[in-house]
Design a protein around this nucleic acid. Structure first.
Ligand code: MN
Ligand code: MN
Ligand code: ZN
Ligand code: ZN
Lengths: 153, 153
DNA sequence: TATATTAATAAGAATCATTACTATTCGTGA
DNA sequence: TCACGAATAGTAATGATTCTTATTAATATA
């Protein structure tokens, strides 16, 4: 049900070119490890952990090290190319989807599903927050049971 | 600016009695380690990590072990007595505040501040989520810069 | 109150997730 | 093509959490 749709093959390749440009702008060398990690994360829609990405990438880049995946994800995050997802789990999880969206988490299977919610994005935050400080970003997390985890009737 | 107010000394002691009852209902023995951990977390309003709690408690219970703090927090969480807070950090953080509330996170100092937001609690979730499944809980995370971290003019 | 039962604890070892170190490789600009 | 520095692979180290086990303590019962 994700409303944040997957890129077509063509859109993906232009995404990759844009990614290379971002790297050059940020003075990051365009290595094939970085390309693979970024592409794998872009194609993934399950907010994978570093280790999940590593296991997927190693089939194509058999010598890549887990450390490179961790290091590269941290680099991408620092340059605003990807996002680290807030969870309650011990392993950090990541996404390349930078379009504003929110998360629905199934408390049975743990799957994190993307969705958009314009009325939330536009809603006014409580007045009391003015004294707290300046709000730049907002994110909604819904928790429930996804359809495939619901007991069949 | 937290709208979720701290308990008065009297309210705290009745909270502790209620906590003891919860333990008995859940067939959990009422140990002084559990009482101290629960009380410390109830009085804390900074969503402390297990280690932060440990360092605070050890001044009163010098022989308590860090493992007991971790184990006890996990037990409390399992029985719905406390909550594990979603963060992007490597250390898990906890709170005893079970009144529905949301979080404003300062991206400079990292402090997590509680606030209530009734219009968000009551807002209708997007229709598209119906096909996703059943939503039980919702939580808003705001990110920004808190007043004490804002550059003075 | 004393005793028996069993859960909970403390201490340290083990594991899991992530980061640091270092010799080597590789991307890039001259 | 070459020189340079940044990035990587492999491995060690660290930080966070959980496990193992002998001991202690909470509670039910006599
Ligand atoms: Mn997402
Ligand atoms: Mn809170
Ligand atoms: Zn599910
Ligand atoms: Zn701050």
């Amino acid at each position: 049900m994700s409303q944040v749709k997957q890129p077509t093959p063509h859109a993906l390749s232009s995404l990759m070119t844009e990614f290379e440009n971002s790297c050059r702008r940020a003075d990051l060398k365009v290595t094939h490890q970085r390309l693979e990690i970024y592409r794998e994360l872009t194609e993934a829609h399950d907010h994978p952990s570093a280790e999940m990405l590593y296991r997927r990438i190693i089939t194509r880049l058999p010598t890549i090290s887990l450390d490179t995946v961790y290091r590269t994800l941290a680099t991408f995050e620092k340059h605003g190319l990807i996002t680290r997802v807030q969870t309650v789990e011990s392993q950090a999880r990541f996404e390349a989807e930078m379009v504003k969206h929110h998360h629905a988490v199934c408390s049975k299977c743990g799957v994190i599903t993307d969705f958009t919610w314009e009325t939330f994005d536009a809603a006014q935050v409580p007045d009391t927050l003015a004294v707290w400080g300046k709000v730049f970003k907002r994110h909604a997390v819904l928790e429930g049971i996804c359809t495939s985890c619901s007991p069949k009737v």
